[in-house]
Structures are given as C-alpha cells and as structure tokens.
C-alpha cells in the first residue's frame, strides 16, 4: 500500500517534469525524495544545491553536487542528482553518462531510486 502511494506520488512528479520548466521541477522533485545519504556534509551540499536550483543557477548546483560526490563518490543518489541537474540544464550527454554511473552503484532493491533513474532516462530519451 505504502509503495503504491509512493509510486503514485512519483508519477505525479513525472507529469510535472513533462509540463514544467526545470526550476519548477526542482520544487516538485526534491521536496518528496529522501536524500540517500546520512552524511551531514552531503546533506548540507544537497541543500545548497537545491537552493542554487531554485535560483536557476545550474552551474552552481552542479559544483555543490560535485563536492558531495567527492565525499561519497559511489553514492548513487549523488550521481542521480548530478544527472538530473545536467538534464535540466540541457547537458543531456552528461546526464546520460551520470545516469549510467548511478546505475553502477544503485542497489537493486532500492525501488525508489531505480524508478527515479528510469524516470530520468525517459526524460532524456523520451
């Protein structure tokens, strides 16, 4: 039941992705996803990245996420966020690369992240 609710919410987010611009997507996406990290530094950088996204500053968002990647280089959530930010800023090539990279480290049982990766791939290659 819980899973159904989560998937419904994700689907709602996907609809949002298809209709809104990047900055608005940030509101829709980041509000409802857990962070995939317990590391306080990574969480702080996620927050800074979110703020940069809200301001439409994709370049700054990427640099915050890249700092997070250095702390947790194999955290698929970090890589997913980098792929997502790349896609929103129009760098689909990098988005595709980082999506692949996130897939290397994603846990098969992490349905949420797997779904988000699928969703992002759909967005990049509709």
């Amino acid at each position: 039941m819980v899973r159904l609710v989560v998937i419904s919410l994700l689907l709602t987010g996907l609809v949002g992705c298809a209709t809104n611009d990047g900055a608005n997507n940030a509101d829709a996406d980041y509000g409802q996803y857990r962070d995939g990290s317990e590391h306080p530094a990574v969480l702080m950088l996620f927050k800074q990245s979110d703020n940069a996204v809200q301001a439409g500053n994709w370049s700054a968002a990427m640099t915050y996420l890249d700092q997070a990647r250095r702390i947790e280089p194999r955290n698929p959530y970090v890589l997913y966020r980098q792929a997502w930010a790349s896609a929103q800023s129009g760098d689909t090539e990098r988005a595709r690369q980082l999506l692949e990279r996130a897939r290397v480290y994603v846990n098969k049982d992490d349905e949420l992240l797997n779904y988000r990766l699928y969703e992002l791939e759909f967005q990049i290659n509709p």
């Binding site: 640099t63 890249d66 980098q82 990098r94 690369q97």
Partner: peptide, 28 residues
C-alpha cells in the same frame, strides 16, 4: 568509467563571478 583526467574545478573572474565549473564527466 572512462573520464578525461582533469586539473580544473572552476574558473571565476577577478571579482569572483563563476565563469566555468568542471564537474565529473565520463562514459561507462
């Protein structure tokens, strides 16, 4: 993951405005 080895993270103007940032890039 084939990545070009890189030395640059970011470039700013003398006043501190960011001109470029070079986050990870590569190909599995």
């Amino acid at each position: 993951f084939l990545m070009p080895l890189r030395t640059i993270d970011a470039v700013t103007t003398a006043e501190g405005d960011m001109l470029s940032s070079y986050a990870i890039r590569g190909q599995q």
